[in-house]
Write a protein that binds this DNA or RNA. Structure first.
Lengths: 144, 144
DNA sequence: TTGCTTGCAAAGGATTTGCAACATG
DNA sequence: CATGTTGCAAATCCTTTGCAAGCAA
């Protein structure tokens, strides 16, 4: 719906490939890289090209349906943005487990920090890294 | 000193290239990419290889002398870590101007958010993006 | 029909790696 | 001398782009 409107408004075309990729993307709950999404989509349509997936992901960004996530490992991941409000990420250094978190007080303070330097905050990224309970337990047990 | 100790402890060698790159790196106040550092170092020793700069930067990370910064533009930048305590970054979306900021209350809240999910926070990254005063002025004036 | 889209393969940019020559401890 | 280290070039990884053929509006 939103995507179709976006396409129409920008004189872009509604193709089966775009529909397929969008559907696959929206079905997922996890963050996903272009390559992972390509693997999924390829199962349904082996003729689809990798470049198309990259291109659609860019479109989804412009249509405000996706958001980039960068954990700093050289791969860009994407997550839904529509009906999925802003949040930050808490990532386990041990097992990679990832939780979405938000703290309204932090959000407010971020605004103020920016303002105190004359900036008008537009957005932010915050990644909290640590060890989850499981990994702490394993660690204190030592390597077997 | 620290670097030399690190090298000794790990059976690594103290070479003129490593010294040169380290000195150049420590002299800088700004964040710098491997390629920029290579350009600088090359002026003093044109025979130096790009790969060596990348390799030394990795070493400095392991020796806890450098820290990676990732603004998400595909280039990894580095900054001193030694005698340069933790801070976050406030970046202008307009001109790219960058300020280092810290807010002790935010830092404390981050710890608590992590703990509330059973995580022990080890570190974090926070990037605040916005528009600085100059860019807001230019923007409201409109493009000429 | 017009011109946006596609898949393919080649190109790109940043970083890493294999290797033979070289230098350090 | 044994090994770590270097510069070079080739290789890698992820992503983008050029292009001719194909397809939506």
């Amino acid at each position: 719906m939103i995507f179709q409107k976006y396409l129409a408004k920008h004189d872009l075309r509604d193709t089966p490939q775009r529909e397929l990729i969008l559907d696959a993307f929206l079905t997922l709950e996890e963050h996903i890289s272009a390559e992972q999404l390509y693997d999924i989509v390829k199962r349904q349509d082996p003729s689809i090209g990798q470049a198309t997936v990259y291109r659609v992901l860019k479109l989804l960004m412009e249509a405000e349906l996706a958001r980039e996530i960068d954990f700093g490992d050289g791969v860009i991941r994407y997550e839904h943005k529509y009906n999925h409000p802003h949040h930050d990420h808490l990532v386990c250094r041990g097992c990679g487990k990832m939780l979405e978190v938000v703290d309204p007080v932090i959000e407010e303070l971020q605004k103020r920090v920016a303002e105190s330097h004359g900036f008008k905050l537009t957005d932010h990224e915050m990644y909290l890294y640590g060890l989850c309970e499981d990994c702490r337990r394993k660690k204190s047990a030592g390597p077997q």
